[in-house]
Design a protein around this nucleic acid. Structure first.
Lengths: 250, 250
DNA sequence: TACATTTAGGACAAAATCGAACAAAAATAG
DNA sequence: CTATTTTTGTTCGATTTTGTCCTAAATGTA
């Protein structure tokens, strides 16, 4: 890989990551630490980033136009990142992984730590995250684009997914109520059901605010999933309830 | 291979990759490193690319207007826009249209003038162009993402397209030689053949530099398409030749 | 604090790339 | 056809880049 290409990629990584470690870059670009340090040094001299021990952080304005604490809280960004981290830790070398729509699944990219994997998704934002990273073979589900969730749905999508077996599926959900995993939209629910049925390991991602809410379109039963991945703010009682029927990771 | 053709091919490569290495070009064009270095030197002097150790990167950003006249000329931006305009004029209300990969097809978005249509594509950049425009129902072809051309290809893609009938298909091509429409890549050629066979009206988009060049992967016969859409710089003899076997729009 | 682990960077070696000079081949002119 | 010009290939030393090794500094941990 050419030096300029590496430089570009490092900048790309900093676009979505605000801080990257030498080892992350190393896994990504398949060169020695020393080369990366030299790259970082050069990029720092150009004023494109600031080196820190173990890596580098970006110094673009848009990193500072970060969300306010209140906004973050509103969207549960921290919780979602926490969940994404737990989910990413489940992904192993050469896995074939399905990632559904949702911010949490988008964040998984930031924490995934393998040198090779196959990613299947019906989410455009997820796809765009992984798009330019050579570690991943990317499969996008075909079908109709649904603007509301930036996801691909419909008959074509369902048919394609019926033919795909994945090691692990990570599905974000709108609501979990008793045994019911639900989605606000039927089409997306149908699709998620299909992929869950074709996945060896089924994970449901849901931050603590998703529990004990009313159900809309029920697409799956909690008892059939391998684990619910959630954050630490989950109500202990709710956690206890779900621990009786499946695994809860948080 | 002629020098001008090599130059064009190098520019083509930079059209889809932001950086190319000498060895990549070498593998593609089957000439010595030295010749490529000389080519790169010449192209750099024309302002069409920037050499870096081991290769060259493009000066493009063809979406921005920042290109000089000379640069635009080499990439045939004006011609591509002209062709896109002619193609867009063919699209009518409520059409179902397939748009393949390529800059020309991306430009179609800028000229399309309908209040409702269904767009089918296997090109990520095309998809992203149309994505947030409520006038269009968008279908994306599923399958494996091919980074080189930002397109979706492979078995899934082929299977899905086999089930889709479109009114009009617009296919950009790498080269047209005699009766042969060719592509540099077999997978993409196969896919384009499938969609052409399922399209009521078949249009080939090719700027004037694409004619009378050597063939790579032949995927279709010119005599079976409804029209070739090209620009006004096409050689009159070549135009006359193709007018005998199909329609030429320019 | 002391000790282990990780990260940094200098120094040198290895590998890749570059480009000048010349030879070979191809194209063009006469 | 031969002579001339242009283009491409080859060789080889210079340059640049990358990897390896090793020591120092920083960080983590008991």
């Amino acid at each position: 890989m050419l030096r300029d290409e590496r430089h570009q990629r490092i900048i790309d990584m900093l676009d979505s990551n605000r801080i990257v470690s030498v080892s992350e870059i190393k896994a990504n670009l398949q060169v020695t630490d020393m080369t990366i340090r030299r790259d970082l040094k050069a990029l720092e001299e150009k004023g494109l980033l600031t080196r820190v021990h173990g890596g580098a952080k970006g110094n673009k304005e848009y990193y500072s136009q970060e969300l306010s604490h209140g906004e973050k809280q509103q969207m549960n960004i921290d919780e979602k990142r926490y969940i994404a981290q737990l989910a990413a830790a489940r992904i192993e070398e050469n896995d074939t992984v399905f990632l559904g729509p949702g911010t949490t699944n988008e964040f998984i990219y930031d924490y995934i730590n393998v040198s090779q994997a196959r990613i299947v998704t019906n989410s455009i934002p997820v796809f765009l995250r992984f798009m330019n990273d050579p570690r991943f073979e990317l499969l996008i589900v075909g079908g109709r684009y649904r603007e509301k969730t930036n996801a691909i749905v419909g008959t074509f999508a369902n048919e394609m997914l019926q033919q795909i077996k994945v090691n692990k599926a990570f599905i974000g959900t709108n609501r979990i109520h008793e045994h019911h995993i639900t989605n606000l939209n039927e089409e997306e629910g149908v699709l998620q059901k299909i992929i869950l049925e074709n996945a060896s390991e089924k994970y449901i991602l849901a931050d603590h605010t998703k529990f004990a809410q009313e159900a809309f379109y029920i697409f799956y039963d909690v008892r059939n999933v391998d684990a619910i991945i959630t954050d630490q703010l989950i109500d202990p009682e709710i956690k206890a309830f779900y621990e009786k029927i499946t695994t809860v990771i948080n």
